[in-house]
Design a protein around this nucleic acid. Structure first.
Length: 575
RNA sequence: UGGGGCGUGGUGAAGCGGUAACACAGCGGACUUUGGAUCCGCCACUCGGAGGUUCGAAUCCUCCCGCCCCAGCCA
């Protein structure tokens, strides 16, 4: 609705799907899946995968996308995570219908498949220690060597595997391994481990199992069981594809999905790895997974991003196989584009400067008419109170204005948005600090609404709030989590945390917002005129004490001019 | 001197033998009761490099260079 409809996305994966459909490869079916491990919160990298998998399903008449939890490692997983993942995927706007699955649902079947492999002499119980297995694996350039247990008889393997399942052995004493090729140049094929012993409760199967399948064994078979046609994953699994195919070939299953890999998303000025994000949370650098600065789905939600903007972003970054880093400016562009059309405009003064309009009658109040969104007249109009004392932004007044500054300055006339032209007559300074404490103006009663009768123009239009009517609010300004485009670009001996932006959060506690914001519901988004888009924080807001999160600032060409002036001495104000 | 991938403008990305889309960023300008939005222009004689095939190559071939992934009983 917000963003104009674009042509359907096209990329190499969709090309494959289209070609398979044309060749009737899967009887016209298109079944994809989004398979997160419930060991953390989803971030925008997952959103890319979600948009690809659910997107492809949605684009095809017979398309379906499953949500499957890849919960094969009980030590790291919990229902807290499955719940957050479900809610995040839903928030993004996708629906898996009845297709919610868990790899743990297949533990019984998977066990049977493993037995089948043993019976065929294609898997064996290995009793080497972890260290020994590593040593026997060889290196990138040297072949591995066979485990001494590789020649155990089928009967012994069957017996041992069953006893592993029954809990007769302690963790680490045995594993089930595929019998493939210890000299394979692909390390994944050097007799990979399929099952390990873990005497740990699983968040869904409890203590029913004490052996758990590894990713490589569980994933391809879960895909096969579910009738997945296209198993789309990220690039680091390219080498695992040979194993994926090997397992399905050995077991002669009737569904053999095609694994296709794409490059994972990297975003500038942030990190996108569950481990690193966890580190930020645990180290107190972020207040939680839903800290508005976090690149998590829950972080974006709390910050005020819309699902539409995130989906649009995921569509615009494309799908390819080269490692790349998308500039976070594109994400910011997407949310601005969306909110420009949908967010009602209001006035809020973040750093107030008192302005007294000397010729405006004391005690008089006018209700002025204001449009809610110039982009969309259907959003209506509202009344805002105006009185003798108003507050404007400190930045909107300069006693000694630099070049190209056309806001308020002594002797200059500007417009108060929707109100009147005012002209600065004098300033009152704080005796102690010498700072401007108050600005005195005269208004022109003939300019009500902000239009002059005589056609004279002003360069500046300022937002303001009426002193006696404004509401106090806390506003939180966010900046990038990291100062560098690449957080990993650090000096020898430091890690990514050395690049954390110390100013990524600025809390302003005495902001003044127009009274129409009284009772603003958590999660509501506004454009604070001339400043940016803001969202009522859903965690810290209280009745009568709203907290606003800045989602993203407006583009600020004055800031650019100012920056350029600082760089070039020629642009300095004239004495 | 193991294997698997990838190299197109600042960034992402099309292109699939016929003479470099699009988007973000940036830079100009118009317009403007948001220095917002909108509009209009500019921004790769060249596709990691070198050879070769061809009337014609980012696209095909050869060699070279660079970057990423793999040595978890993680996923």
């Amino acid at each position: 609705m917000s963003a104009a409809d674009r042509k359907a996305p096209s990329d190499f994966i969709r090309d494959i799907v289209r070609e398979d459909l044309r060749a009737n490869k899967n009887d016209g079916r298109v079944v994809t899946r989004f398979p997160p491990e419930p060991n953390g919160y989803l971030h925008i990298g997952h959103a890319k995968s979600i948009c690809i998998n659910f997107g492809i399903a949605l684009e095809n008449k017979a398309g379906v996308c499953h949500l499957r939890f890849d919960d094969t490692n009980p030590s790291k997983e919990s229902t807290e995570y499955t719940e957050s993942i479900e809610s995040d995927v839903r928030w993004l706007g996708f629906d898996w219908g009845s297709h919610l699955y868990y790899a743990s649902d297949y533990f019984g079947k998977l066990y049977q498949y493993a037995v089948e492999l043993i019976e065929d002499g294609k898997a064996y119980v290995c009793s080497l220690t972890t260290d020994e297995i590593r040593e026997y694996r060889g290196t990138l350039t040297e072949p591995g060597k066979d485990s001494p247990y590789r020649t155990r008889s089928i009967e012994e393997n069957l017996d041992l595997f069953e006893r592993m399942r029954k809990g007769e052995f302690k963790a680490g004493s045995h594993v089930l391994r595929a019998k493939i090729d210890m000299a394979s140049p692909n390390l994944n094929m050097r007799d990979p481990v399929f099952y390990r012993i873990k005497h740990e409760s699983h968040h869904r199967t409890g203590d029913k199992w004490c052996i758990y399948p590894m990713y490589d064994f569980a994933h391809c078979l879960s895909d096969s069981i579910e009738g997945i046609t296209h198993s789309i994953c990220t690039l680091e699994f390219e080498d695992n594809r040979a194993l994926y195919d090997w397992i399905l070939d050995q077991l002669k299953v009737n569904c053999h999905p095609q694994q296709i890999e794409f490059a994972r998303l990297n975003l500038s000025h942030t990190v996108l790895s569950k481990r690193k994000l966890l580190e930020l949370v645990e180290g107190g650098y972020a207040s939680g997974w839903d800290d508005p600065r976090m690149p998590t789905i829950s972080g974006f939600l709390r910050r005020g991003y819309t699902p539409e903007a995130i989906r649009n972003f995921c569509e615009r970054i494309g799908v390819a196989k080269s490692n790349s880093v998308v500039d976070i400016a594109l994400l910011e562009h997407c949310i601005r584009q969306d909110l420009n059309l949908r967010a009602p405009r209001v006035m809020a003064v973040l750093r107030p400067l008192r302005v007294v309009i000397d010729n405006y009658p004391e005690g008089k109040v006018e209700q002025l008419d204001a449009e809610n969104n110039p982009e969309d007249p259907s959003m209506g109009r509202r009344k805002i109170p105006f009185s003798r004392v108003v507050y404007i932004e400190q930045d909107d007044f300069r006693e000694d204005p630099p070049e190209k500054f056309f806001r308020l300055t002594p002797g200059r006339e500007v417009r108060l948005k929707h109100a009147y032209y005012v002209k600065c007559e004098r300033v009152v300074k704080d005796k102690g600090t010498g700072q401007v404490a108050e600005v005195h103006c005269r208004y022109d009663p003939e300019t009500r609404g902000g239009w002059s009768q005589d056609g004279r123009k002003v360069r500046g239009t300022l937002h303001w709030v009426s002193a006696t009517h404004a509401l106090e609010a806390e506003v939180r300004l966010y900046d990038h989590l990291f100062t560098k485009r690449d957080p990993y670009d650090v000096e020898e001996g430091f890690d990514f945390k050395a690049n954390i932006n110390p100013n990524s959060l600025e809390k302003l506690i005495s902001c003044l917002v127009e009274p129409t914001l009284a009772g603003a519901r958590p999660g509501t988004r506004y454009q604070f005129l001339r400043q940016g888009y803001f969202c009522v924080d859903s965690v810290d807001s209280r009745d009568g004490a709203p907290v606003f999160n800045r989602i993203v600032s407006l583009r600020d060409s004055w800031a650019k001019i100012e920056r350029a002036q600082k760089k070039s001495p020629l642009g300095q104000p004239k004495p």
